[in-house]
Design a protein around this nucleic acid. Sequence first.
RNA 1: GGCGUCGUACCCAAAUGGCUAAGGGAACAGUUUGCAAAACUGUCUUGUACCGGUUCGAAUCCGGUCGACGCCUCCA
Length: 459
Amino acid sequence: MELYNTSVRKKVKFTPLKGNRVRLYTCGPTVYDVAHIGNFRAFVFEDFLKRVLTLVGYDVTHIMNITDVDDKTIQRSMDRKIPIAELTETYTQRFFQDLDRLKVIPADGYPRATDHVKDMQEIIQQLLDKEHAYISNDGSIYFAIDSYKEYGQLAQLDLSGQKSSERMADDDYTKENPQDFALWKSWKPEDGDVYWESPWGKGRPGWHIECSAMSMKYLGHHFDIHCGGVDNMFPHHENEIAQSVCATGKPFVNVWLHNEHLLVDGGKMSKSLGNFYTVEDLLNHGFTSEALRYILLSTHYRTKVNFSLEKKHEAIKAVQRVQSFWDRLNEFEVSDGEMLPDESEAFINSLSNDLDAPGALGIAFDYIRKMNNRIDQKEITQAEITMAINFMKQINHAFDFLSLNIEVPSEVTNLAQLREDARKAKDWTKSDALRDQLKELGWEVRDTPSGPKCHLIDL
RNA sequence: GGCGUCGUACCCAAAUGGCUAAGGGAACAGUUUGCAAAACUGUCUUGUACCGGUUCGAAUCCGGUCGACGCCUCCA
């Protein structure tokens, strides 16, 4: 498959560094607050990447960090007068809950920054030893970007032409170069009891160092894929590269993937505009997990997606189309077999082309219409049913648009049976009344050749 | 100011210089249905922001204009 590697700004053929295993690191949340739907665009994109990699046959080891210490987190815990660990644990659990609600496959590990301070210190020491870092006069440690000639390569920044503004120079008088970034922040009174002992005194790690430490610890110095939002490209990922490469003297990440942002109503999400949505908000608005996945995946990951509440209907209808076809297929007797229709190859080719999810969906919907038509015409064969089931499983492996194993409450089943009895007796008044009754319970009944079928109403 | 992205039908959104520019949603008409729902068929046919250029051939490449947005400082 081909992936767009930000590092070289073009699509490149992807091959794992070692055998069949893809080692994947994705930047996780800072757990000082609830993550919003924009954050989850990144996490759902990464989930999709992983699903496609496994669909084409790779094994994936996926690590996502949890940033549980930084300026904002410390500030929030002080404002709320609760211990930082309590604050971060609350939002970490909330994050996992939201991932689950969006049907995101869990990572193989979610290392927390605060559990890896020692690993970070080791890297910092290596950087000091190799003179890529220096201790400033307040005890903080900075990475010297002048010591790494490749600095700016990922973001394609030419730093030689940039001059430091007076403001920066004033704020950062202890740095050798205003662009140098912190590896270790010395303790200040406003940090309270948030500090770790180190060879350089009390302090806490800079933000970028955690990803270098944890990715290399769990995936090795040189691993396959590192993902994040476009905003992380600079400075975060640029700094990660500098730290990691200079500390180990080895290549760091093979392929960098960056997803574009999500806009709401054409602009940035903000609490003051009232367009700041969490997963919970949207579920309360009547979006389903599948509809949210559809919205996040039906635009290519490198294109900005414009979210709005008006998309609910479109998204729900689209995923229901897939669901209805699946339900319809399952009314047939299914025989075993690995056969797949020709469309499966086109579908996988589309996904292999830098995760062209919209293109793949086009193929899937074309196929669904074609097969619905064959069922309507009563021309469908047993072999086609089997292939359709297998193909739909592939589609669902990648997108997860189907709600499987929904249990119909016995109350609903009973009412549906009463209605069916009334229909057989041609008592249309009674049967329509029972249908209305079911509707009030949130269920819709469809009369099919094999009897009435109940479906949850999403709208 | 520096770097970069984008503009495709009523809405959303693919198309890596080459067949009639996918697909989803909405709308309208029909088939089917006791009526529905779902599904199917048809319509939405001078739709690639605008102007110019390169080419046998351009949504795609180049230049310009207009518009939207991102990064350069914490960000998915």
